[in-house]
Structures are given as structure tokens and as C-alpha cells.
Deep mutational scan, measured.
Amino acid sequence: MDALKSAGRALIRSPSLAKQSWGGGGRHRKLPENWTDTRETLLEGMLFSLKYLGMTLVEQPKGEELSAAAIKRIVATAKASGKKLQKVTLKVSPRGIILTDNLTNQLIENVSIYRISYCTADKMHDKVFAYIAQSQHNQSLECHAFLCTKRKMAQAVTLTVAQAFKVAFEFWQVSKEEKEKRDKASQEGGDVLGARQDCTPPLKSLVATGNLLDLEETAKAPLSTVSANTTNMDEVPRPQALSGSSVVWELDDGLDEAFSRLAQSRTNPQVLDTGLTAQDMHYAQCLSPVDWDKPDSSGTEQDDLFSF
């Protein structure tokens, strides 16, 4: 819950932080000083300027060897085509990944977070970031790969997607708890209302004896509580940590079903599988986004697919 609360507080303090972009060759504004600060901008989305290598189908939802083989196929196909790589912007948030063309600003792909089953910074092609997700059109699994400016960037994108998945799962947990509370309150309110109706004398007997209905007592009954809980029953509950912020979080049926399955089948359902080692994760978390744009010590960066 700490990640969720800190993310909400950060967004309320400075929503404009989320509009910064990394990996864009110096076009961005001043960047936060450390990885923790940038992680807090996830709610509205972190932007990464990358190059799209392509996509291939895979048979399993996750796995280092599986993704490595898929990336190898994608890279080989991209090299064989001889075409310049498409420059894209990857927007990562707890909602998922939005992929747009840098030149036309046209939407290429919009992947809900619950469809993503794996992401990684490839070991062999260490400047490549990739994720595996279920197609929104059918049940097939797709591996999408992107060329980053350097290994640090690939690791940073991988960690960002993993963190977005974690925050999304926490949102789901909060929403589920809130819905259970509202359902319980609604049920209790309905029981109270039913009890009051059972003990209320029939209207005919009131008229016969000349008694008047006590409207004041009726007004004191917990009807307002019942209506408050039943009027918006169809509205999706939102985490309290975000009250007053500009973010509107809505959970669709697909996300609810997917996270429910994860909660039942996995020990740590909030953790998205990645190909990063503990050492890689520690190294990337210690980086400032400013470091992502620094040239690798191995030599001059080449803006070309064939540089790796």
C-alpha cells in the first residue's frame, strides 16, 4: 500500500511530472533526481522514447528462454528487412502500455495491464526491452520488442512496467475491499429498513384510530445511509488515497477476473515476472533518469539497429 499512497501523494503535489519523457535525446524537461521519484509518476504514465523492432507469436506467457528466442527472431526479421526502425513513445501506467508513433502521434497499440504476463531486458541484446501480452483480438500470446538507447534504459522500462503492474494490483485490492464494505453496509441498511417496515402498523389501523404518522421519526431512520450505499452501487469504487486528485481509476471486468485468478494461483500475485536478476534490479533502481541518457562506457552510441 505504500507504493499506492506515495504515488497518489506525488501526483497530487505535481501532476505535471508524469508528462516528462525519457530517452528522447535531450528533449525532456528537468528530471527527478532518483528512481523513487520517477516511480511516483506512474499514475498518469511515464513516457519512454524507443524504437519498435516488431512482434512475434509465442506459445507460453512467460520465460527467459522463451523471450530470448522470440527477441532473436524479431531482431533477425528487422535486420533482414533493412528498413529504419519506427520511433515510438511507450506510455507506461497502472492501466497498461500505450504505444504511439512519434511522427504521426497515431495510436499503435493499447495493452491493458492485466494482459501483460512478462517483461524483460534481454541478456543477449542488452539494449532490447520486450514484453509478452495476450492479444486483445484473440487468445494468442505476442512478444513485442523495442530497441532502447542503452542497457540502462531497457532495464528502466522493464522495472517501470513491473512497478505499474504492482500498483494496478494494489488498486484492485483496495477497490475489492471498498466494494465488500459497501455491499455489507448496503445489506445491513436493508435489514434495518426491513425491520422498521415489519414493526410499522398498517396504514388502515392508523387511520381508524385517528393517529398521525410521525414524519420526524421517519426522517431519523437510516434511510439516507441505505440510499447512499445503493444509489451508486454500479459505480466502481476508487482508492481513497486518490481522493481529490485528477486521476480516475476504473476497474473493468477483465482486470477484476484476471487479478482474482492471480490472487488464487500465485504466492506473490502482485509481482510481474521479469528477466532481471536481483543485481540488475538493484543497479537500475539506483540510477537517476539522467543516467539513462548518458552514453555507455563501451563506446559511442549508434542510432541504428545494427549497432548491437
Rank of each mutant, 00 (worst) to 15 (best):
V167A: 10
F259V: 02
L276P: 07
E170Q: 03
E33W: 11
L213P: 15
G23E: 11
K51W: 01
D183N: 11
E188I: 02
K19C: 09
A185W: 08
A78G: 07
A3I: 09
N229F: 02
C143V: 08
S246F: 03
Q279W: 14
A18H: 08
D296L: 04
F146K: 00
P237N: 10
A3Y: 10
T225R: 11
K127L: 01
F146Y: 09
K83A: 09
F48T: 02
C286W: 10
P61H: 02
A162F: 04
T231K: 05
V128S: 00
D37G: 12
R261L: 02
L251Q: 14
I74K: 00
N229K: 09
C286N: 10
I12G: 15
E65Q: 14
I108M: 02
V92W: 01
F306C: 13
N34I: 11
C143K: 01
G63C: 11
V92A: 15
T300F: 02
L251M: 11
E65Y: 10
L31C: 10
T158W: 06
K179N: 07
A145G: 13
K176N: 12
S135G: 09
A278S: 06
E178V: 12
A78M: 02
A164R: 12
I116M: 05
K179P: 05
K184M: 08
A7I: 02
Y118P: 01
E180C: 09
G275H: 05
D191A: 10
H137N: 15
A69S: 10
E178W: 14
A7Y: 13
G8W: 00
L107N: 01
D122L: 00
P94I: 08
P201W: 03
A133W: 02
Q240R: 13
E109L: 14
N229Y: 12
A70F: 01
C286E: 09
K84G: 13
S245H: 03
A133D: 09
E40A: 10
A258N: 07
L66R: 06
N138W: 04
H125C: 00
V157E: 00
I74W: 01
T89Q: 11
S117E: 05
K62H: 01
V271A: 12
A154S: 06
L206I: 11
T41W: 12
R27M: 15
Q139L: 10
K84Y: 03
Y283S: 11
I97E: 00
M46I: 15
L223N: 09
I108S: 02
L107W: 05
K181L: 12
R115F: 03
K30L: 11
I71N: 00
L66M: 08
K220A: 13
A263I: 06
A228P: 06
L272A: 04
K51Y: 00
L31M: 14
S186P: 09
S21G: 05
K62A: 12
Q155L: 04
E44W: 05
K150R: 12
K152N: 02
A162I: 05
S81N: 12
K181S: 13
A76G: 13
D256C: 06
G25L: 15
V226P: 08
S117M: 15
Q187R: 06
S112I: 12
D191G: 06
R115I: 01
Q136H: 10
D252I: 05
T209F: 04
Q197C: 01
L213M: 12
V247T: 14
T160Y: 12
S81Q: 11
P237Y: 10
S227I: 11
H137W: 07
F146L: 04
A168M: 14
Q197G: 03
L90Q: 00
L251V: 08
N110V: 13
V161W: 01
Q20K: 15
E33N: 13
V161Y: 05
A10K: 15
R13H: 12
Q20C: 14
S16Y: 09
H144R: 15
Y114D: 02
S135M: 12
K62T: 09
D2M: 04
R261T: 04
Y114E: 02
Y131Q: 00
E65C: 08
G82I: 01
P61L: 11
S297R: 10
I116R: 00
T225I: 04
F171R: 05
E64L: 09
L31Y: 11
S14V: 07
K83G: 08
D303V: 06
F169K: 02
E257I: 06
E216R: 08
Q163S: 12
A76F: 04
R95V: 15
K91H: 11
D37I: 07
N268D: 09
